[in-house]
């Protein structure tokens, strides 16, 4: 079974491809949706095309699938319409699957289900990455504010942190907001570079 993933090269395409290979599929290509990708795809004559539901190139892809004379058999989205639960899960996960006509549904189903799981895993991973990034930025801001307090008021690191925390609690604000405000204020008070002379 020849499977083509239409996606930009990157994490999502890679985790999908890896998953398919682990499941024993070997004939897999990743085609970036740019320029003349539709003609390339047509030459590959895939049995299954997997593409992000929101991909802007889906109209171009569907047009090729409609008018192609090169493809031996027509390809349509979710050919087996009887499995509504699977289609619903696919749409929610953002997966659209185009499947060649005549491919038995027992053969297609595991591919689509795997794509759904991998798309969901990717979405979760991205959320975690975003959270980790925010966390890191927060810590940097607080460290910087602590440094300012230590330098300007001669406080120890634990005291600088305690002062930030008590200020935040008294004002009902988040620690990072207070730290941010301190950094901004300190930049305003600082003499411009070279002005000291």
């Amino acid at each position: 079974m020849r499977i083509v993933i239409v996606d930009e090269p990157g994490l999502r395409a890679t985790i999908l491809e890896d998953g398919l290979r682990e499941a024993g599929y070997t004939d897999i290509d990743i085609v970036p949706p740019r320029g003349g990708f539709v003609a390339r795809l047509e030459r590959m004559a895939p049995d299954v095309v997997l593409i992000d539901l929101g991909n802007p190139s889906r109209d171009s892809l569907e047009e090729m699938l409609t008018v192609s004379r090169a493809l031996a058999r027509p390809i349509a989205m979710f050919v087996d319409q009887s499995d509504e639960a699977m289609i619903g899960a696919a749409i929610d996960a953002g997966v659209s699957a185009y499947v060649v006509d005549g491919l038995r549904k027992e053969r297609v189903k595991p591919v689509v289900e795997l794509a759904i799981r991998r798309f969901n895993a990717f979405a979760k991973l991205r959320t975690e990455l975003d959270e980790a990034r925010t966390e890191l930025a927060t810590r940097k801001t607080i460290d910087k504010a602590k440094g300012i307090l230590m330098q300007t008021r001669g406080l120890s690191e634990p005291d600088a942190y305690a002062l930030l925390r008590s200020t935040a609690m008294n004002q009902g604000r988040r620690l990072v907001e207070v730290a941010d405000a301190l950094i901004t204020a300190s930049a305003l008070f600082a003499a411009p570079a070279g002005a000291a002379k």
């Binding site: 109209d59 619903g88 929610d92 659209s96």
Partner: peptide, 16 residues
């Protein structure tokens, strides 16, 4: 907001 008509169509047809 979507980018392609295929996506708009699928969201409607499949009830999103």
């Amino acid at each position: 907001r979507d980018t392609s008509w295929a996506t708009v169509r699928d969201r409607l047809v499949f009830g999103q």
